[in-house]
């Protein structure tokens, strides 16, 4: 693996910024795509990060809240150049959606009153619903396949709490995270005892 320090610090930051900018501007299809592309760029092309470490960096990006694409850029930036790296990488990742949605926002009112666009957007609502339900089905069946009673209970109870009783998403996340933490600690203790 080449040492990124061989490059000047400025060169690393510049490359970080333009790589994340480019990836963010041209990747459609969500965060996981961008994580793959980050790997291509920094592991396969630049050899700044080795493969195993990249897997752990991706795990960190996925374990943190927020958009995976931004998290991926931040963790790579941190690894390569510390705090300045975070700044440049996240700026690169955020800039394209910021510019594009600003433009969309300006034209939204005009856009919305156009006969064709209006029809498009209202027809697409059913499509968006289908896309979301399809995602839920995929994610839900992978939870169901785990045959883990606690996970299934969490899924059912969270849905009921959120949908029927309007319990805030924030409380659900906090409570479920606490359950997960306790469970992991208990599990690790047990493992320590048996070994």
């Amino acid at each position: 693996m080449d040492d990124p320090l061989k490059e000047t610090k400025k060169g690393v930051l510049k490359k970080l910024f333009f790589s994340t900018l480019y990836l963010s501007a041209f990747t459609f299809g969500g965060g996981y795509v961008i994580v793959t592309l980050l790997k291509n760029k920094f592991v396969d092309e630049l050899h700044w990060i080795d493969e195993d470490e990249m897997l752990d960096l991706v795990a960190i990006a996925q374990s943190s809240p927020g958009a995976i694409a931004v998290n991926g850029a931040i963790v790579v930036g941190y690894k390569l150049a510390g705090l300045p790296g975070i700044l440049f990488a996240s700026l690169g990742a955020v800039l394209p959606p910021l510019v594009i949605l600003t433009l969309v926002s300006y034209f939204y009112a005009a856009f919305r009153s156009n006969f064709i666009i209006q029809g498009m957007l209202s027809g697409m609502r059913a499509g968006v619903g289908a896309v979301i339900i399809s995602v839920v089905y995929d994610m839900g069946s992978s939870v169901a396949k785990s045959k883990d009673a606690l996970l299934l209970a969490i899924m059912a109870v969270s849905f009921a709490a959120n949908y029927f009783f309007n319990v805030s998403v924030v409380y659900i996340v906090l409570l479920v995270a606490a359950i997960g933490a306790v469970r992991t600690i208990v599990r690790e203790r047990r493992k320590d005892k048996t070994t």
């Binding site: 839920v136 994610m139 839900g140 939870v143 606690l150 996970l151 299934l152 969490i154 899924m155 059912a156 969270s158 849905f159 959120n162 998403v169 659900i172 996340v173 479920v176 995270a177 359950i179 997960g180 469970r183």
Partner: peptide, 9 residues
């Protein structure tokens, strides 16, 4: 453990 809650939400 968060994943199933996220699916539900």
């Amino acid at each position: 453990s968060l994943r199933p809650a996220v699916v539900a939400m």
